[in-house]
Design a protein around this nucleic acid. Structure first.
Lengths: 258, 258
DNA sequence: CGCTGTGAAGATATTCACAGCG
DNA sequence: CGCTGTGAATATCTTCACAGCG
């Protein structure tokens, strides 16, 4: 509540469905691997297997981009690599800033997948004065005070937030005010952003929780009638297990304070 | 192609839709924050705002769990925290191993959100003998040779892979063979796993590419008829931009080799 | 004949809008 | 009267299955 909208409303881009967009990078990676092995063409079946999807889905996805295949043959690898890259906007250079250079921020700075896809780490920013000047992944860390200047000087439109949860919204606001319109958020918080700004979220703990859900299900199926459903009819005045104890700060990833 | 199935087929658990499961952790986090502030009840509207979703969706999500609210009032925070925790399987302890202790692995090991949700880092594993014994986040790193023993001794069913792409499938196979049935994969590769094993993927570079897509779109809308569509009718023998150069190993996050 | 491209069917997910309980 | 819980309407995504091009 307050700062207006929050999530991207499935912007319904040109005509390409969001679900398809989310898979294009997957196809691109598989195609790049083929390209490096100098494979000239692939069938939808082969490429789908390499990307971990089914072939009908892949063909439908590609159909939104245009008719880039050849019936009876398959797809030209190089051609598709180019088309998908272009569609994703990877034929241009995207300067990116990473804010919050703890373990995670450092891992991101070192991540090879960035540079290899048109993303260039323009700057690393941290609130800790002791970090200033220290090189991480060959790039000197700059202090948060410089944030606005860095964004403007480098024409940065994509920002990565890897700070503790408590600092994320504030950093986000500054990034947005300085002109950033896309944010990749690793802090476990919901960010409020104005319309027109995209936020994507990566949350390690959420992924684990989803796994735990399915894991529990599996265990339940095995034990089935074995142990029997012991815990279930809880009185309306709950039981609670591990909610309001533990440290004062909910969910903060223990990266360097920013 | 080869190792059988690949992705989780939307296991369609009890009756709870996958999309709902994916949001439960979000609600849980918001509720935990309220709980810490000793807020006794919330309306769907308030909670939805805190979780960044709309209230109709939230109510529908909760309706799959049961009727835990009170009409005219809202939801009891503590009670809901418990119910969601239980549904997600967080009332039990999940020992987790992290394989690949580079920057990313270390960030994960230090991540507070794990411990706070019933996940316990049972062991850190790395292939580099030089790492063995070195403590990371207070836990001594063990060598890959011990992997099977560690899994069995600790009854681990969830594994986190933070190795370079090249090692991921191999590590995955060993984890699965040793009894792991849920995997969180940070390596930029498609993992093949047998039926019954869940894989979730977190891919930093994919998220950025999705942002770039939308970012490009925004730019395009602004410039609209300005610059005009210059690049488009490319001959079928592509142009390629940045595919087959760069280091020999596609997408590897530059974490410690495993 | 093989494989793409795609309508149409089916499955999921989201949103609306309101009945009905506290 | 306020707010939940939910059928019904809509939107989105996936899968099927096959026409039709190379």
């Amino acid at each position: 509540m307050a700062t207006g909208r929050t999530h991207r409303p499935a912007t319904r881009s040109r005509g390409i469905p969001e679900a398809t967009v989310a898979r294009l990078p997957l196809y691109l990676r598989a195609l790049t691997a083929l390209s490096e092995r100098s494979v000239p063409t692939v069938s939808s079946e082969e490429l789908a297997a390499a990307a971990g999807v089914n072939s009908a889905k892949l063909r439908k996805d590609f159909s939104y981009l245009g008719s880039y295949g050849t019936r009876g043959v398959g797809y030209d690898v190089e051609y598709l690599v180019y088309q998908i890259s272009r569609e994703l906007g990877l034929t241009q250079d995207w300067p990116v800033v990473i804010v919050g250079i703890g373990n995670l921020g450092a891992a991101l700075a070192n991540y090879g997948g960035f540079a290899s896809r048109g993303f260039r780490v323009a700057a690393l920013i941290d609130a800790d004065p002791a970090m200033a000047g220290k090189p991480v992944a060959g790039i000197p860390v700059q202090h948060t005070d410089e944030l606005e200047k860095i964004i403007e000087d480098n024409g940065v439109s994509i920002g990565v937030i890897a700070t503790p949860a408590g600092a994320a919204q504030q950093v986000c606001d500054r990034l947005v005010a300085a002109g950033v319109t896309s944010i990749l958020n690793f802090a476990p918080t919901v960010l409020s952003v104005p319309d027109g700004v995209d936020v994507r979220k990566v949350d390690l703990s959420i992924e684990l929780q989803i796994l735990a859900f399915h894991e529990q299900r599996k265990a339940g199926e095995e034990a089935a009638a074995a142990a029997g459903a012991a815990v279930d009819g809880i009185p309306a005045t709950a039981v609670r297990k591990q909610s309001a104890d533990k440290g004062p700060d909910g969910d903060v990833p223990a990266v360097m304070p920013a």
